[in-house]
């Protein structure tokens, strides 16, 4: 099943759902009786799931899983590893549901943090073992075979380079430039100041440029 959230206009920049603000703080039972699940906020769906409404979990997964998988794939390249990270992150969300405190953080922000941390763990393990050589599944069936190879080669090069960066730099660069998050959002996700985000992303990009400096032709960026 290809989740068509993007085409349905539910996804914002970076592949994550837009914030939903149509549901005020109504009593949960009343809300479940009067409002379709598709119009409830992520936090309200999480409350509904915690109270035993399984359909709320399905709606949350439909909204959040594509973004979690995309974020993990962009950082790790390896499809199987990205799926494991996305599933693990969602499992943590289900476990968090009964103790979720509304108003502390957006569910999507929380999930960005969890996926990002899980990916950093994977990159750390990869740094201790071998670089990623395997080519993952084709990213876009519409691309030609040569283009797919080029895309996968670029993804693998970037992922290996991110694995060589200090963890906070890799996290900030990925959130800023792969996920398209704003600096204040990244500051919230990483629990640091905006100034620190700016510093981390700038140093991270310089380090990436140094690591990949000799691979311009290999990655097909001769004309850049």
């Amino acid at each position: 099943m290809a989740v068509a959230a993007k085409s349905a206009g539910l996804m914002g920049a970076g592949g994550w759902p837009r914030a939903r603000c149509c549901a005020a703080a109504k009593p949960l039972r009343l809300m479940l009786m009067t409002m379709p699940l598709t119009e409830m906020t992520d936090a309200d769906l999480l409350r509904a799931y915690a109270s035993g409404t399984q359909e709320a979990a399905a709606e949350l997964a439909r909204r959040l899983l594509p973004g979690a998988l995309a974020q993990a794939t962009r950082m790790l390249t390896d499809r199987a590893a990205a799926e494991d990270v996305a599933q693990d992150a969602m499992m943590r969300l289900w476990r968090q549901a009964p103790v979720w405190r509304a108003g502390e953080a957006q569910v999507s922000t929380w999930l960005y943090r969890v996926v990002s941390n899980l990916c950093i763990d994977q990159l750390r393990k990869r740094k201790r073992t071998t670089p990623l050589d395997a080519i993952a599944d084709p990213a876009d069936p519409g691309e030609s075979a040569a283009d797919q190879m080029q895309t996968q080669s670029r993804m693998a090069a970037l992922s290996d380079a991110l694995a060589q960066l200090p963890e906070r730099q890799a996290q900030a660069v990925a959130l800023r430039h792969l996920e398209g998050r704003s600096n204040p959002e990244i500051a919230e996700i990483m629990d640091i100041s905006v100034r620190s985000v700016e510093s981390l992303t700038a140093r991270g990009k310089r380090a990436l440029a140094a690591i990949l400096a000799g691979r311009r032709a290999e990655l097909g960026y001769d004309d850049v």
Binding site: M1, A2, V3, K6, G14, G15, A61, L65, P66, L69, A70, T73, R74, R79, A82, E83, A86, Q87, D137, A139, D140, T151, R154, M155, A157, L158, V173, H177, L178, E179, G180, K205, L208, A209, A210, L212, A213, R216, L219, Y221, V224
Partner: peptide
């Protein structure tokens, strides 16, 4: 090199894999 990194990050940012039935 900076331009190459910008292009590389931009290309990888476009990757949007589908969620298949098994994962869901």
């Amino acid at each position: 090199d900076d331009a190459m990194i910008d292009a590389l990050l931009g290309d990888v940012a476009k990757v949007a894999p589908d969620v298949d039935d098994a994962l869901m």
